[in-house]
Computed example of a mutant assay.
Amino acid sequence: MATQLPGDLTAGTYVIDASHSTASFSVRHAGIAKVRGTIAIASGTITVGENLEASTVTAVLDAASVNTGDANRDQHLTSADFWHAEANPTWTFASTTVKVDGNELVVVGDLTINGVTNQVELPTEFAGTATDPFGNARAGFEAEIEISRADYGLTWNAALEAGGFLVGDKVKIALDISAIKQA
């Protein structure tokens, strides 16, 4: 059974508004604190089908744009020790399926980081629609996922004197998306 579109969301193509959207992450550092950062969304498209299952999502993030508030750490993250932004300048997501179960929306797709692609399930929440002051019809979406750094070949680490490692394996990624409907 195809699931109807929620609220005022209408079928069509929506372009992700990079200036009003955020891709953020957090990872444990030294096992006690979290390091948080953002990566710029370079582009993306959400095609809303006549029903949710017929929808698709693509997104491209700029790997060199990482911002953790510490220039030295940002430079290290973009180096070959981590995601080697020079060789792998983008992270990408391309949906393969959209699943709906009651009020839960899960966008399944291929996530590529550091040149490594894995299928992920991205629980997604429709945040609503609005018309901005310039007459643009907007749709909002939020999603969160936890991935393993090792699954993407991000294995650099340093052992701690008291045991454990400097950088945790689990990374939480959060997306806050504002997309503009195309005419």
Rank of each mutant, 00 (worst) to 15 (best):
25 F>T: 09
25 F>L: 14
27 V>W: 07
30 A>E: 00
30 A>W: 11
31 G>Y: 13
32 I>P: 00
33 A>F: 10
34 K>Y: 15
34 K>G: 02
36 R>D: 08
36 R>K: 13
36 R>C: 06
36 R>P: 02
37 G>N: 14
38 T>W: 03
41 I>P: 05
42 A>G: 08
43 S>G: 15
45 T>W: 10
46 I>C: 03
47 T>S: 11
51 N>D: 12
52 L>G: 10
56 T>G: 06
56 T>F: 01
57 V>E: 12
59 A>W: 10
59 A>G: 03
60 V>E: 10
60 V>H: 05
61 L>C: 09
62 D>F: 04
62 D>H: 01
63 A>T: 13
65 S>I: 07
66 V>Y: 01
69 G>V: 14
69 G>A: 01
70 D>I: 14
71 A>I: 02
71 A>P: 04
72 N>D: 11
72 N>F: 14
74 D>G: 09
74 D>V: 09
74 D>R: 08
78 T>N: 11
80 A>Y: 12
82 F>H: 05
83 W>Y: 03
83 W>Q: 06
84 H>M: 03
85 A>L: 07
86 E>K: 14
86 E>D: 13
87 A>T: 05
88 N>A: 11
88 N>T: 06
89 P>F: 01
90 T>D: 02
90 T>L: 04
91 W>R: 05
93 F>S: 13
95 S>E: 12
97 T>L: 14
97 T>Q: 15
98 V>A: 07
100 V>R: 13
102 G>S: 10
103 N>V: 07
103 N>P: 12
105 L>Q: 05
105 L>N: 02
106 V>K: 13
106 V>Q: 10
108 V>Y: 12
111 L>G: 03
112 T>M: 10
112 T>Y: 09
114 N>F: 14
116 V>M: 05
117 T>N: 01
118 N>I: 04
119 Q>T: 14
120 V>I: 15
120 V>D: 05
120 V>S: 01
121 E>I: 09
122 L>H: 10
124 T>I: 01
124 T>V: 04
125 E>H: 03
126 F>R: 08
126 F>S: 04
129 T>N: 09
129 T>G: 04
130 A>K: 15
131 T>P: 04
134 F>Q: 08
134 F>A: 09
134 F>G: 00
134 F>N: 09
134 F>S: 09
135 G>W: 07
137 A>R: 14
138 R>L: 15
138 R>E: 06
139 A>C: 09
140 G>D: 04
140 G>A: 06
143 A>T: 03
146 E>P: 02
147 I>G: 02
149 R>V: 00
149 R>F: 00
151 D>C: 11
151 D>S: 11
152 Y>A: 13
152 Y>N: 06
152 Y>Q: 11
154 L>Q: 00
154 L>I: 14
154 L>K: 07
155 T>Y: 07
155 T>E: 11
157 N>S: 13
157 N>L: 07
160 L>P: 00
161 E>R: 13
161 E>P: 02
